[in-house]
Simulated scan of single mutants.
Amino acid sequence: MFSDIFKQLLQNCNVTAYQMSKDTGISESLISNWKSGRQLPKYDSLNILADYFNVSGDFLLGRTDEMPKQVEKQESQVVKEPTKSRIIPLYMTRASAGTGNWLSDDIPVEWMTIPKTSLTEQADFMLKVRGDSMQPKFFDNDVLLIKKSPSILEGEIGIFILNGDSYVKQMGKGELISLNPVYEPIKLAEYDDIRCAGKVIGTVDFE
Rank of each mutant, 00 (worst) to 15 (best):
M112S: 07
I48H: 01
Q70N: 13
L46V: 01
S133F: 03
G98F: 04
N33L: 12
D44P: 09
K73T: 07
E66N: 13
K35H: 06
P181D: 09
P89Y: 12
P82E: 03
E66Y: 12
K69P: 00
M67H: 00
S56H: 03
D23Q: 07
Q122C: 07
L60A: 09
I159V: 14
D51Q: 05
K199A: 05
A50S: 15
S3Q: 08
L144E: 03
N54P: 03
E184G: 04
R38C: 04
F125T: 09
D205P: 00
N101R: 08
L162C: 02
A189N: 11
T99R: 15
S21I: 05
G158L: 00
P41S: 01
V129T: 07
K187C: 02
K128E: 09
N33Q: 13
S32V: 03
E81N: 14
D51F: 06
K69M: 10
L127C: 11
T203A: 00
M171Q: 14
V15T: 12
Q77D: 00
M20G: 03
T117Y: 11
G158N: 03
F2S: 05
F2M: 13
Q74K: 15
S56Y: 00
I88T: 05
E184P: 00
L153Q: 14
I152C: 12
Q39C: 10
G57F: 06
D105H: 08
R195A: 04
L176N: 07
Q77V: 10
T99W: 15
K128G: 12
L162Y: 08
Q77F: 03
K35S: 07
E75K: 14
I152E: 13
Q74N: 14
I152T: 06
Q39L: 06
V78R: 10
M67W: 14
D205K: 14
L179W: 03
I31S: 04
A197E: 15
Q11A: 10
D65N: 15
D165R: 07
K137S: 10
K84V: 10
P68E: 07
V200C: 14
L60W: 04
A123D: 06
I157M: 13
V78G: 01
P68R: 06
F2K: 04
S32H: 05
L30N: 04
L61A: 05
F59S: 02
L144Y: 07
Y167Q: 13
M171W: 02
E75M: 11
D205E: 14
P108N: 10
L127T: 05
F6G: 01
Q122M: 12
V200Q: 07
L162V: 01
C13M: 11
A123S: 09
W102P: 15
D105I: 08
R86P: 10
P181I: 08
V55N: 02
P136H: 09
R94T: 14
T113L: 01
D192P: 04
